[in-house]
């Protein structure tokens, strides 16, 4: 059997009035692959991510997603109900700021359990058991399960958000600057965790970041974006070690060496 890409994007364009959010984006994402999207602020990275995850309506293009049963749907054509169901079961979105992705007034266990309850879990004991399980997987002590996220450190909040996203076993994870706002050592630990989770669960992921170190550690392939367009794409090492486009060269050479 010839494997099919999980996500296949063609000609995706989003305009904000006269301005361009992203222009004619096309790529394939294969099962188990991590795709990094890099570029400076305002280059259209987040617009692209939101178009793919259904939070923004693109002006044109197609996004084909192959479902668990093998059928392929165009995410821009399916009814909103089906798209939102996929968003609950097959995708997850890790926000840059954990406050956007968590319910800050709900305990850690409730946060992790929400997606389970959203897909129909109605047994308190089992929901709690799975929440405890996932807290352990993201290295949060199990006795913090009843604490509110506001009492957690920034790194713990981000890990809690990841647990909340992964509890329903999505196949595709969108990450928007997952390590933004964290200090270097916490960032390293989070990246390590993400790397092992992605490998263990055979996840596909699209990681938007401006941090090339994050991209190098997590991503298998990279898209370099500038002014809403993809200017270069290829294997991560290839793009970072031998950038071809002048903008990629600028981006790589701008990284500070400690």
């Amino acid at each position: 059997m010839i494997p099919r890409p999980l996500l296949s994007v063609r000609g995706l364009t989003k305009r904000y009035g006269q301005r361009v959010g992203c222009l004619d984006i096309g790529f394939d994402l294969w099962p188990g692959e991590v795709l990094g999207v890099v570029g400076e602020s305002g280059s259209g990275k987040t617009t692209l991510l939101h178009c793919l995850s259904g939070r923004l309506e693109p002006n044109s293009g197609s996004v084909s997603f192959s479902q668990r049963d093998g059928s392929v749907v165009d995410l821009l054509q399916v009814p909103e109900a089906a798209r939102r169901r996929l968003a609950r079961t097959d995708w997850a979105l890790v926000h840059q700021n954990p406050r956007d992705g968590l319910r800050m007034g709900v305990s850690a266990g409730g946060n992790v359990g929400e997606r389970l309850m959203g897909v129909g879990a109605r047994h308190y004991g089992q929901i709690r058991g799975q929440a405890l399980d996932w807290l352990e997987q993201v290295e949060i002590p199990q006795d913090r399960v009843d604490d509110l996220p506001v009492e957690f450190s920034g790194g713990m909040q981000q890990r809690l958000q990841i647990a909340r996203c992964l509890v329903t076993r999505p196949r595709l994870v969108f990450m928007d600057e997952p390590t933004g706002g964290l200090d270097a050592s916490v960032q390293a630990r989070l990246l390590d965790l993400l790397r092992s989770l992605v490998a263990d669960l055979h996840l596909s992921a699209i990681v938007v970041t401006h941090d090339l170190a994050v991209a190098r550690l997590l991503a298998h392939r990279l898209l370099v974006m500038k002014d809403g367009e993809v200017v270069e794409s290829g294997l991560t090492d290839q793009v970072l070690d031998d950038p071809q486009h002048p903008y990629s060269q600028l981006l790589v050479s701008s990284v500070l060496q400690p």
């Binding site: 939102r84 609950r88 319910r103 266990g109 929400e114 309850m117 129909g120 308190y124």
Partner: peptide, 15 residues
């Protein structure tokens, strides 16, 4: 999409 209603009950039982 009524999953969130049970989050409220979950919080009650937890607390």
């Amino acid at each position: 999409e009524y999953g969130v209603m049970h989050v409220r009950l979950y919080e009650d039982i937890t607390q």
